[in-house]
Design a binder for these strands. Structure first.
Length: 800
RNA sequence: GCACCCGUAGCUCAGUUGGUUAGAGCGCAUCGUUGACAUCGAUGAGGUCAUCCGUUCGAGUCGGAUCGGGUGCACCA
């Protein structure tokens, strides 16, 4: 056994061992309860983030625990590699722009590039010791995922849930695509509130405040609150829009807020979501002044071709010159931006596909309520989100690299022609329908939009399960046991998966949900390139090892964001080294004494019985904690057993027996050492997986009939009953040992320094422990007594 | 505005269903290296559990209010 544990080479070696021997391969034939995990497929948009290594380790620890608890673990791995994030990555890597390329060329480039980068990308996940069955692999753009995603769409269409309409949608002018409500985020922006003069028919002037004067050409009405006494007499009058001079009606509507601006608002199609509501409620005309790329249309007259921002400046200066703008004040307000590119979104009218689901809010809420949430409070994030839903799910994207819609439109009658389910996956641009339209026409127009990537990744349970061919096994896999993920995508991935599962399977996709927190920098800020505070997992693995990261991740409560500090990682490394050294000590003793384990007629000493009881107690705490997904508590249970009881005390106590001549006592000690260390290594194996495997390999593999430590279950530990008396007595024994050490420390003696006499005040039956106390303290005698401490190297300990 | 989380030792955090003297690691101080470990060990000093009120025989833990830090959602003419 190496004197120095070289974690860099050992961890790599062990990962290869796992891989080569298919240690984590899912076997559908095992007669065990299945534990199926809906592994999050990481988005291929760059490199692994420290937050990934944190949350993926947490779920991996749970997976490994499940194996220890005798479950047949189904743990697939996928990558989410289509849609905007992937397109953007390819553009960056290959220095191209989609707009300059042919669609087919770009798709080809995406596919080719993915082939190049995916092995390295996936390797990052292997580097932290993930115990997935990497043969159960899917990509959300592979043929099988396309097929299932397209089939999902067809099913939803046939249910009447998928529909296509021309409607205002949230639009990103940079990405030139519709996006969904969940893809927006907030940003605080500086802007100007401009006071503009509208002329009323009666000759009076009406002042309106707006932040978006560039939309004047789209102004279709003016709204005032019906309660607003200032404006009651002008309701239903016409007002003339400055610069453009068309006339719009003043309408009373309670959505107009009296306190905001002057209390009179102009409604433009469309400036914001309220405009859209007014447009629908009052059947207002549609005037689109901004096109899909964010430029002004010919409706904007002389401002045509400018960007919205340019137009705003131009029109503001024109208004000032014309004396129609009588004031402006700087304000800061929130604007919605596209989370992928941070561009301010617009509302634009266009034809899109939607999934109708606003009518199902109640079902969603009750489904969310049926899940077991760890931690429980994360449920309210989902509830909050569902309650706030205002749009159906827009699933079409005007992009290229994604799953195509499996349909065409008849050129003659316009009707939708769906692909046959048997022919999936299809690409309507390349493929043709096999039968004519109902109207008899054979001329079709393909749908060129692609599906929102969430429309596919919301099917991960179905996709992962489809990789198993065994029909019986499939039934055991769904609903899945666990969805692990971080909290940032509760409203995206978790919610969408829930939606699809309810629509398709009419039941929840999983039983449990575990939510990991985020890793923040040491100051508690989000990590970002612009702040320069990004931590690369690769560097951490190099300096501390993957096990150190794993140990660290196991110490954080679920759902709680955690500040990254290198000191915390150092503790993990320390634990790994301590375990390695303790194991090395044990192995040394086994070798020097030609020890072979057997359990016959052992002459157990009290300390042996104590540490055996402590193992039983620790296993119990460990199991209880894990069942509640309480990772830190489970870790603490092993830590206490290993550091406090085993390394600091038990090892020290038995040294003399192991070095001594009493063969019976020596054998009992070695045997206990052998089984307790094995228990400890088993308990540590889900957490610091590599070093545990290596210790198993060094010490236990030759005697035990299994290839890997991860093939053992709690039952293999053959735990008996706890001896409660010895356990409580040992709390006192440990205190006595501690007092003797304190005495030595205070007298500047080394920890092994001999002392002549220890006097202990205790009940007579406590004398059973005197021998081990004598041994661990290197005292010439330990006696029962009542006197005070008088001789310099004599210790008196009082037991209460 | 609505909702959620957090506030415990100098720092980072743990404290199951209320129950003796509130824990860990780091840091700090003192001491100690010839039989696993100096990438170490031993010992020790640090706490009015944010504040106030209440429930209770008993509150870090339960309820209410307040203050401070953060997050999600909404609003954003």
């Amino acid at each position: 056994m190496d004197k120095q544990y070289d974690f860099i080479s050992r961890e790599l070696e062990i990962q290869k061992f796992w891989q080569k021997n298919g240690i984590f391969k899912f076997d559908p034939d095992l007669e065990k309860e299945v534990f199926s995990i809906d592994t999050p497929p990481p988005t291929v948009s760059g490199q692994m983030h420290i937050g990934h290594s944190f949350s993926y380790t947490q779920q991996d620890i749970v997976a490994r625990f499940a194996r220890l608890a005798n479950k047949n673990v189904f743990y697939p791995f996928g990558t989410d590699d289509n849609g905007l994030p992937t397109e953007r990555l390819i553009e960056k890597l290959k220095n191209v722009r989609t707009v300059d390329m042919k669609r087919s060329q770009f798709i080809e480039l995406c596919q080719k590039t993915l082939q190049e980068i995916l092995p390295d990308f996936i390797q990052d996940w292997k580097d932290i010791g993930m115990s997935c069955d990497f043969d159960l692999y899917y990509s959300t753009i592979d043929d099988n995922s396309r097929r299932l995603s397209q089939q999902s769409f067809i099913d939803l269409y046939k249910m009447g849930r998928a529909y296509r309409i021309e409607a205002p949608v949230v639009w990103c002018p940079t990405c030139r695509t519709a996006i969904s409500q969940m893809e927006m985020e907030d940003r605080v922006d500086e802007s100007k509130f401009c006071d503009l003069t509208f002329k009323l028919d009666n000759g009076e002037e009406l002042i309106i405040s707006t932040t978006r004067p560039e939309l004047l050409s789209s102004c279709v009405a003016i709204f005032v609150n019906p309660q607003d006494e200032r404006y009651q007499k002008i309701v239903n009058q016409m007002a003339q829009v400055p610069i453009f001079n068309h006339k719009v009606k003043v309408i009373a509507d309670s959505r107009a807020e009296m306190e905001k601006g002057t209390g009179a608002a102009m409604c433009c199609t469309f400036g914001d979501a309220t405009d859209m509501q007014w447009y629908r409620a009052h059947k207002l005309p549609l005037i689109l002044s901004i096109d899909q790329s964010g430029h002004m249309t010919d409706k904007a007259g002389k401002y045509k071709g400018m960007t919205a921002k340019e137009a705003r400046e131009a029109i503001t200066s024109d208004l000032k010159v014309a004396g129609l703008m009588i004031g402006e004040k700087k304000i800061t307000h929130n604007v919605n931006v596209h989370e992928r590119c941070k561009t301010q979104v617009e509302i634009i009218n266009s034809k899109q596909w939607f999934i109708k689901y606003l009518d199902l809010k109640e079902q969603f809420l009750s489904a969310g309520n049926k899940l077991n949430w760890y931690p429980d409070f994360m449920k309210s994030r989902l509830e909050n989100w569902i309650k706030g839903l205002q749009w159906d799910w827009c699933i079409s994207r005007q992009r290229f690299f994604g799953v195509p819609f499996p349909l065409w439109y008849c050129k003659n009658c316009g009707k939708v022609k769906l692909a046959n389910v048997d022919d999936l996956p299809v690409d309507p641009i390349k493929d043709k329908p096999k039968t004519p339209c109902d109207c008899g026409s054979n001329e079709f127009e393909p749908e060129i939009d692609v599906l929102d990537t969430w429309a596919t990744s919301s099917l991960t349970p179905q996709i992962a399960i489809s990789l198993v061919s065994d029909k019986v096994a499939k039934d055991k896999l769904f609903p899945m046991s666990l969805r692990p993920q971080a909290h940032d995508i509760i409203s995206f991935w978790l919610f969408n998966t829930l939606v699809k599962s309810l629509l398709h399977e009419n039941k929840n996709p999983w039983r449990d949900v575990m939510i990991s927190g985020w890793v923040l920098d040491p100051k508690g800020r989000k990590m970002s390139k612009s702040l320069g505070n990004v931590i690369e997992p690769k560097n951490i693995i190099k300096s501390y090892g993957a096990d150190a990261i794993r140990y660290w991740a196991c110490g954080a409560a679920l759902g709680q964001d955690i500040s990254f500090t290198e000191e915390e990682i150092r503790v993990g490394k320390k634990t790994v080294l301590k375990l390695w050294n303790a194991a090395r000590f044990c192995k040394l003793q086994f070798e020097q004494n030609l020890f072979t384990p057997d359990n016959e007629k052992l002459n157990l000493e009290p300390e042996d019985e104590w540490i055996i009881s402590r193992l039983i107690i620790a296993v119990d705490e460990y199991k209880k904690s894990f069942k509640q997904y309480n990772l830190p508590m489970a870790r603490a249970a092993v830590d206490k057993l290993f550091w406090d009881d085993f390394a600091d005390n038990y090892l020290e106590i038995i040294k003399e027996r192991v070095y001594g001549q009493d063969e019976g006592s020596k054998h009992a000690a070695l045997n206990t050492l052998y089984s307790i260390l094995f228990g400890i290594v088993c308990l540590y194996s889900p957490i610091i997986a590599h070093v545990s495997e290596k210790i198993y390999d060094e010490i236990y593999k030759r005697d035990k009939n299994k290839e890997s430590i991860s093939q053992f279950i709690f039952g293999d530990l053959n735990l008996g009953k706890v001896n409660k008396n010895i356990v409580s007595d040992f709390e006192i024994v440990k205190k006595i040992i501690s007092k003797i050490r304190k005495y030595k420390s205070e007298h500047q003696l080394s920890i092994n320094a001999p002392i002549s006499k220890v006097t202990i005040q205790a009940e007579d039956d406590f004398e059973a422990y005197f021998s081990l106390i004598k041994s661990v303290s290197n005292a010439k005698s330990v006696t029962l007594g009542r006197g005070n401490l008088e001789i310099e190297d004599t210790v008196k300990v009082k037991i209460s």
